[in-house]
């Protein structure tokens, strides 16, 4: 009886691990898409409105869901409280702090951090060109993430279950 219970336990936990990894694969393109959407909002605000960057960030944070929300809330907070530290520094800090709680990986982090170097410090035209570039780069990452999702999501799920089954068979 205890043996059976243990076997079930093993099977359940390996499947859970598999599903979790699969979920990360599914979440990544979705989150990149959200980041991209936020950049579009930023673009509209910078082109047509001339609001301050911290207000824009707050506005975006209000409209979007996590992880975009936490990224922009943090940015707005740092912009307001860090006493004139460069915009890039505020943005980078926010990105670094938000990252662990997302399914996002290094390539898109690089894109966002790179984009932060120009955020707010140039005229409108320049801002737009950098925004467009960052969005295109994110788009590339998104399609790659989607490919990976197709390839690995199902595999991870079944691998989790099968690995559990294998262990159970071996030790039964």
């Amino acid at each position: 009886m205890i043996k059976l219970l243990g076997a079930c336990f093993i099977l359940l936990s390996t499947s859970a691990i598999g599903f979790r990894i699969a979920r990360a694969y599914a979440d990544r393109p979705r989150q990149i898409r959200r980041m991209r959407g936020a950049l579009s909002l930023l673009q509209t605000e910078i082109t047509y409105g001339s609001r301050r960057l911290d207000r824009i960030c707050e506005q975006i944070a209000k409209r979007e869901k996590d992880p975009v929300r936490s990224l922009y809330t943090r940015t707005a907070h740092y912009l307001k409280t860090l006493d004139g530290v460069s915009t890039f520094e505020c943005w980078k800090r926010a990105v670094e702090e938000t990252w662990p709680s997302t399914a996002l990986k290094n390539p898109e982090k690089e894109v966002l951090i790179d984009f932060g170097k120009t955020l707010g410090i140039s005229d409108r035209e320049d801002q737009l060109s950098h925004l467009v570039r960052a969005r295109t780069n994110l788009e590339v990452e998104e399609s790659q993430a989607r490919e990976e999702q197709m390839r690995y999501e199902k595999m991870c799920k079944s691998l989790g279950v099968l690995a559990g089954a294998l262990i159970v068979i071996l030790i039964y």
């Binding site: 910078i46 001339s50 609001r51 301050r52 960057l53 911290d54 824009i56 912009l79 006493d83 004139g84 530290v85 460069s86 915009t87 505020c90 955020l119 707010g120 410090i121 140039s122 005229d123 409108r124 801002q127």
Partner: peptide
């Protein structure tokens, strides 16, 4: 100087085009 410009513009130089 950099910090001062950031504080004056609230990190939003694009909004200060006319002023600049």
């Amino acid at each position: 100087c950099e910090k001062m410009l950031n504080l004056i513009s609230n990190h939003s130089l694009y909004a200060l085009e006319e002023e600049l």
